[in-house]
Design a protein around this nucleic acid. Structure first.
Length: 500
RNA sequence: GGGCCCGUAGCUCAAUUGGCAGAGCAGCAGACUCUUAAUCUGUUGGUUGAAGGUUCGAUUCCUUCCGGGCUCACCA
């Protein structure tokens, strides 16, 4: 029998044999002199004769990912997770005890190898083993060596297995780390201060979304997992931190899709004395900088599209673009003025088969039309700017147009990546906007903003003119790594628990 | 939450119109002193996601449930 349970039994039996030989089954440490990656980096270009002359000694460790045995001459592939290196094992070149260990090894076991570097007859860089130490047992059979692990569900549920056998998966998460590091470097170099603000908040503000709820026992206090750090970061700008940012998790109790995970990572940054125009320029600089650090250039391939982060990004005025697309779709003229008129805008939306709720004003309807007609076509990085005030409770109005705010969203790959605006810093107007939100809330909109008295008070102390922006890190990583699902760029995406 | 699709050995996949559940890898036993998905000989391994139903007979058809994928809605 060789079901999984039986194979596991067989592996355990080999471990018991090692114990009987006096081998420690789970030793505490192995003093390696080099990682496998370091050895390949150092000797990857060194010729066989040069290695024979130098005979460099090493102690390396890793997981066995393949074995080819020939009785007396044996080869195995040792991996440090990042790189593979061949090990040559022969009975007459190591203590008998070490060869007894070797004979009882399974694919997936972790070992330490001491020996010297050389090249085989086929010129492959190899450790000529003079000793083997057993370091950890793999009690379960690994996925197949050639096809790897392709089952999507298993890859997400058992990410460790995915990482062992699928190097491409590992590369995505290495790229993710580079992207985040690149963003920090970019902001730090410009004098931004990284801060941490509450994940648990008495009022879930800063965005329009349903929160997760929790409870603090000692204080008997209902709390929300934050949906955004925005209102806390702006309090810090009131406090005199003129350039702040935070890279951390947000939690939104909404649907799961290829572009949504209930917890996701967001960069938010705020800079005093700048407006949304400045933010757009800065975003172009940041993204091309980060793209270069990951892909080597400004280009990436996503869902079969070649995407370029080279500046300048396309710019579309929301109402203008919505009117233009609606005109084209309906075959009759629709003007921006029409989209500012509630009745006319609603009529256009219905003609386009978009849902219009009684509580929706002209601004919400114009935004719905825009998103419905444009969003999935915005493959190249595009700034959509000048949003209706109605859908932007925290943004500052344009000086000459109170129905429009200085706000933009950046789209790429067919979805929203960033959202930024000139911050509303008039406490009277902010209170009025919150009150509008409360009306929506009373009308049943669970995503409408709550009143935050302390935030209004902070504004009363005076927030300087400030620009602020959020960038969805997961989505940016999707674009820069060519990953079609957000679950491919989150190590442990949320899954429904499975009964084992 | 709605619609469509998927679930067969540890892994990757087959199975004709409803007619004996199979292969490769891994495993096990053996051969082999430079292999590269090593090769060769032999061999183990299945509650076909679960429970019902139709049928002489179900991996196959039907129902329900479980898990997943895509998509729509919500949203970032």
């Amino acid at each position: 029998m060789a079901s999984e349970a039986v194979q596991s039994e067989q592996r355990r039996a080999k471990l018991d044999e090692l114990i009987a030989l006096g081998v420690s089954p789970y030793p505490v440490r192995f003093d390696r002199t080099d990682t496998v990656s370091a050895l390949v980096a150092r000797y990857g270009e060194t010729s066989g004769p040069d290695l024979e002359a130098a005979r460099p000694e090493t102690r390396a460790a890793g997981r066995i990912l393949s074995m080819r045995t020939f009785g007396k001459a044996n080869f195995l592939a040792l991996s440090d997770g990042l790189t593979r290196l061949q090990v040559y094992v022969r009975a007459d070149s190591m203590p008998e005890r070490d060869f007894e260990i070797f004979k009882r090894l399974d694919l997936g076991d972790t070992i330490g190898v001491s020996g010297r570097m050389f090249r085989t007859k086929t010129n492959e860089l190899t450790i000529f083993a003079s000793g083997i130490e057993f370091l950890a047992k793999c009690l379960l059979p690994l996925p197949e060596k050639w096809h790897g692990l392709t089952d999507i569900e298993t890859r997400y549920r058992q990410r460790y297995l995915d990482l062992i056998v699928n190097p491409d998966s590992r590369r995505v998460f290495e790229a993710r780390a580079k992207i985040v590091a690149g963003i920090r470097q970019f902001l730090n170099a410009r004098g931004f201060l990284e801060v941490e603000t509450p994940m648990m908040q008495p009022i879930a503000g800063g965005a329009l979304a349903r929160p997760f709820t929790t409870h603090h026992n000692a204080l008997d206090l209902p709390l929300y997992l934050r949906i955004a750090p925005e209102l806390y970061l702006k309090r810090l700008t009131v406090g005199g931190f003129e350039k702040v940012y935070e890279i951390n998790r947000n939690f939104r109790n909404e649907g799961i899709s290829t572009q949504h995970n209930p917890e996701f990572t967001m960069l938010e940054f705020y800079e005093a004395y700048v407006d949304y125009q400045h933010l757009m320029t800065m975003t172009e600089e940041m993204l091309v900088d980060v793209a270069r650090s990951v892909t080597g250039g400004a280009e990436t391939t996503f869902n079969g599209h070649q995407i370029s982060f080279a500046a300048p990004f396309r710019r579309l005025s929301l109402r203008h673009a919505a009117a233009e697309a609606a005109s084209e779709r309906l075959g009759r003229p629709v003007s921006e003025a029409d989209l500012r008129n509630r009745e006319k805008a609603a009529e256009v939306a219905r003609a386009l088969h978009f849902e219009v709720q009684p509580s929706h004003g002209a601004g919400k309807i114009a935004t719905t039309i825009f998103e419905g007609l444009w969003e999935d076509q915005l493959i190249q990085p595009t700034f959509v700017y000048d949003f209706p005030t109605e859908v932007s409770p925290l943004s500052k109005q344009k000086p000459d147009d109170p129905d429009t705010v200085e706000r933009f969203e950046m789209y790429a790959g067919g979805f929203e990546v960033a959202n930024g605006f000139s911050e509303l810093n008039d406490p009277v107007e902010q209170r009025r906007r919150f009150e509008d939100q409360l009306k929506d809330r009373a009308a049943g909109d669970a995503e409408a903003h709550q009143m935050d008295e302390d935030y209004v008070r902070a504004l009363e102390y005076g927030l300087p003119p400030t620009g602020g922006e959020g960038i969805g890190i997961d989505r940016l990583v999707m674009l820069l790594t060519g990953s079609p699902s957000i679950r491919d760029v989150i190590l442990f995406p949320l899954m429904r628990p499975r009964e084992d």
